[in-house]
């Protein structure tokens, strides 16, 4: 596994390690501010709504990316966590089981826990079979949601009645494009920072080592099952976060959120953006939504365009968009400072 593998220098995203921690402390507020600026620059609610969806998509695809970066396996079924989280909140609220805040926490905890337990079993399965397994699990859940009308409301889905405030914030904040975009953007930035820190932590490095050479990792004293299952759970948690945000924004739950097309879209975003980098999938989400919505107005052939980008990226531009940008930035930096790259 050479081309798509993560190298140590890529863990540092091409930037010298000494600058990273300081850089992170600087970049996070900048990133957050950028979101604020963006939301003020864009006045069209339609565009803001689209951007909100793009950010939610970015979060989901980041979850897919984490799984690949740390475990070396591809998930074609991440919608399972996305949709489950939405359904948990929806169903719990519909039956008045608990407060909305509690159900949101539950919607994050349950899929993560389930993923960990499931992971203990399925991370042992080799790559190709694992991919197909994720498809099967995702589709099984989809079919269940689709058909079990009495429990899930069937293929039509259902609306969620929100209370006036959620975590002390007026519910309208979650439903208006302008404010919701800011919120989702903040969540995305925080997740990316957290993942960056995680990937450099001992545990993060361990999972990369296990991914590179599971056998030797065992022979230097590590049980590999639990770290891998934990990584799977982490990627599920991120997917669940995206699902909760989507549900809060849309106020609606349906089996569509569990469909394999949601999973495959997330995977496309991750591949196009670059699986090597923490922020790759998020970049890919931007490209994806741009192609789908904006180019989609000009031409109907956006699926083919995306397909071609996926092919080209998988074959030749392994680093994806993030990789291309990083290389360009590195090149520029060296040119400007007059040093050798």
């Amino acid at each position: 596994m050479t081309e798509l593998a993560v190298t140590n220098t890529e863990l540092h995203d091409g930037i010298p390690s000494t600058l990273v921690t300081r850089g992170l402390l600087a970049i996070t507020p900048i990133g957050l501010c950028a979101g604020v600026v963006l939301s003020h620059l864009v006045s069209s609610n339609l565009l803001l709504s689209l951007m909100t969806q793009a950010v939610i998509g970015a979060i989901l695809s980041t979850g897919v990316g984490v799984l690949y970066r740390q475990n070396g396996v591809v998930s074609f079924g991440h919608a399972a966590f996305y949709g489950s989280a939405a359904y948990i909140v929806g169903l719990a609220t519909r039956h008045g089981v608990a407060s909305i805040e509690a159900t949101i926490i539950l919607a994050l905890v349950l899929p993560t826990l389930a993923a960990f337990l499931l992971g203990l079993v399925i991370v042992r399965v080799p790559g190709t079979a694992f991919a197909m397994l994720t498809i099967a699990i995702g589709q099984a859940l989809f079919e269940f949601a689709n058909k079990a009308r009495d429990i899930t409301g069937g293929d039509e889905g259902f609306r969620i009645e929100f209370p006036a405030t959620i975590f002390g914030t007026p519910t309208s904040v979650f439903q208006k494009p302008g404010t919701m975009f800011l919120l989702c953007w903040a969540v995305l930035v925080l997740i990316l920072c957290a993942l960056h820190v995680f990937s450099r932590s001992p545990f993060g490095r361990l999972t990369v080592a296990i991914r590179e050479n599971q056998e030797r990792a065992q022979f230097i004293g590590y049980t590999t099952l639990i770290p891998r299952a934990m990584t799977y759970a982490l990627s599920a948690l991120i997917g669940a976060v995206a699902g909760v945000l989507a549900m809060l924004y849309n106020g609606f739950v349906s089996p569509d959120s569990l469909h394999v097309s949601v999973s495959s879209d997330a995977l496309i975003m991750a591949v196009i953006g670059g699986l090597k980098f923490v922020w790759g999938p998020a970049a890919g989400a931007v490209v994806f939504f741009f192609v789908k919505e904006i180019a989609g107005d000009v031409t109907e052939h956006w699926p083919a365009i995306l397909g071609i980008i996926v092919i080209v990226t998988s074959l030749w531009l392994r680093g994806g968009l993030a990789g291309a940008l990083t290389s360009a930035a590195g090149f520029l930096r060296h040119r400007l400072s007059g040093t050798e790259p």
Partner: peptide
């Protein structure tokens, strides 16, 4: 049987943690 993409010191570090 080593970890090709990790640096020498990183992989020894990982082993050392155990």
């Amino acid at each position: 049987n080593i970890f090709p993409d990790l640096t020498v010191i990183d992989q020894l570090d990982i082993a050392a943690r155990r």
